[in-house]
Design a binder for these strands. Structure first.
Lengths: 209, 209
DNA sequence: CCGTACCTCGTCCAAAAGGAGGAGGTACAC
DNA sequence: GTGTACCTCCTCCTTTTGGACGAGGTACGG
């Protein structure tokens, strides 16, 4: 029996996961949470085998932070990211945060079962589009953004100035400028506008809402 | 009994909707489709009271086109858009295509029931964030971009500098700057980065090949 | 221990962009 | 004709970015 904790702020998605996992005797949904704080708390109390984590869980602690907390404080819990976007930046950051796998929400039930089983055994699973993003990145290592750079690019793409970036991330404007220059080189551009456009092309942006 | 057709390419979402609607005797899920073509065909055959339509249903006919087809050929069917994004452009386009309502996927079951009941009676429903987008737009009609401004914003969003814009459009940099200032005021921003981000949010950008 | 990658911060300078204000031209509706 | 909306261009000024250095700190694997 594999014990699963759901962290997702969409009622419909949680209901779907309950229905799909409930139809298989090998899985048991032991808890649900709709935000990062509650999710982390429940994970540490319930100690599930696998956490199914949505990355876009709204206000407060986001999915990446929640993943980091859980894997840091309870290394035996496997965090399987289950989300809508294949944002390049998110993948890098959440895997860096300790996630065991990354599934897109258009996965079939069979893929979901397999991924949870694999995660419970500690094996990694990536959705095909996600895997291809990472593979492409391996083949062209010079374009690989570091986690920090990916984070900054994502904020950049939401329209922040250097000053706003520095205050958001609690570092100096100089640091922001340095990161941006590195990002520009890796993206092959020389203005922030082109970097934002390129980020959009590469699907590195996050939608609001 | 309200007969509902689901059009969504996510297994998990369809399972969730089945579970949530199935718990209420007033609703019956009479069919499911995972793409626009199949969805339109089923709608015209099954003649449900309400279609729950995801806008991002991948390749082929998209959600807006499918909505237009269904409402054009079977005006008695109410199309309730049920999707993740509150993209400004999508909302306007799909309502123009004849959708009766627009719900975000983070709606609660109660909101979903109410919206389907309302749609079955022909009444419109909009999620709060969606309604606020439309209201804001109604209240500030001066935010409409002129054709020239829209053209410049689109080029801007591809990363061009003022000089590149001026050369592309055969006008002076001064002219570009003037247009940009007008665009900034209409978009409520004061930097090109924020304007690009805003353009992305409003779906005003074009993807290059 | 050493090398490497990453994140951080600094200076100095040049280029680009933002902002205010004015202004001439066309096209079109009333 | 008058008014309005739009596109075009100008000057003068401040602020922001981009670019080219260097450099200290941490973390990690060989």
């Amino acid at each position: 029996m594999t014990r699963v904790l759901l962290i997702d702020d969409h009622d419909v998605v949680r209901a779907g996961l309950r229905a799909i996992l409930g139809s298989q005797p090998e899985f048991e949904v032991v808890g649900e949470a709709t935000n990062g704080d509650s999710g982390v708390r429940q994970a540490l109390v319930l100690l599930p085998d696998v956490v199914l984590m949505d990355l876009s869980i709204g206000a407060g602690m986001d999915g990446v932070q929640a993943t980091r907390r859980i894997t840091a404080e309870a290394p035996d819990i496997r965090v399987l990211v289950f989300t809508t976007y294949d944002s390049d930046a998110d993948i890098v950051r959440v895997i860096d945060a300790g996630a065991t796998g990354y599934l897109l929400k258009d996965s079939t039930p069979a893929e979901l079962y397999a991924a949870i089983r694999a995660a419970a055994r500690g094996q990694a699973t990536l959705s095909a589009p996600v895997a291809s993003v990472l593979l492409k990145r391996m083949q062209q290592p010079e374009t690989a953004l570091t986690p920090r750079e990916a984070e900054i690019l994502e904020l950049l793409a939401s329209g922040l100035s250097n000053r706003e970036l520095s205050r958001t991330l609690y570092v100096s404007e100089t640091t922001i400028k340095t990161h941006l220059l590195h990002i520009y080189r890796k993206l092959g551009v020389d203005t922030r506008s082109a970097a934002i456009a390129e980020a959009g092309q590469r699907g590195l942006t996050r939608r609001r809402g």
